[in-house]
Amino acid sequence: MREKHIGLGIFTFLVFVFLLGPLLIISVTSFEQGTVLKFPPESFSLDWYKNIFEVSGFLETFKVSIYLSLAGNLLALLIGIPAAYALNRFDFKGKALLEGIFVSPIIIPGIVLGFTFLRFFITYYQLPIYAGLFIGHTVIMLPFIIRVVSSSLANFDFSIEEAAVSLGASRIGTFFKVVLPNIKSGIIAGVLIAFLESFNNVDISVFMTGPGVSTLPIEMLTYVQNYFDPTIAALSVVLMIITALFMFFVERLLGLSYFTKR
């Protein structure tokens, strides 16, 4: 089955041109000196990269996005690791229902989540807007943490835990000394994936931003709707580099099969 099929190869190549071409084009245009996006660029400069720092808001909201992802991750880990552990370790009545609840933030449309969060967190529960953002982002990160940690635990041999207990370790001690060290890479990968999920999120944040409170994707969205210069292209390149780094680490930790297994 290994013989090459020329037609299929060309077709696939064109699919990749479609997928990656646009990203390549904005990367190249980000080095254009003029104020209009041109391809191929007629000159070379890093002015637009400098402009990222000069446009008020980008640096600010970049920080907000990072804090938000980190804080959300922390809470999602605190909630998600015990849940993933229990779901993999024990038999439950209604296990399917519980698993369903934990994946539901992926299934429910993001825009619907965003709207209900606005309506309930801010208006009904009277939470400060940053708290609303924080909880909203935690909700959408939780399924990713649980999914990745669960797949690590699925490969974990729980008799190791029994070995530790039989040697005198307590239940909690066993978890920290024996279970946690062995699912460490899964946890780190889960954090990275959840981080990207939160960092790139528009659907939730778009409802909970306003004057003075914004995240980077929302700031970019607003900027693009009003201006059309290579600043966003330059910023996109920066984000793509971050994405590539994250992908590299996730691949190292989990392998590509994480992405293809469903």
Partner: peptide, 28 residues
């Protein structure tokens, strides 16, 4: 296969704002 999968996954993980923006540049 690994190379092609990485090339497929990369856009998947890239910000949807960036990806939509890239098309504004092309079809504007």
């Amino acid at each position: 296969k690994a190379v092609l999968l990485i090339l497929t996954i990369f856009p998947l993980l890239t910000s949807p704002v960036v990806r939509s923006f890239s098309w504004m540049v092309i079809i504007g």
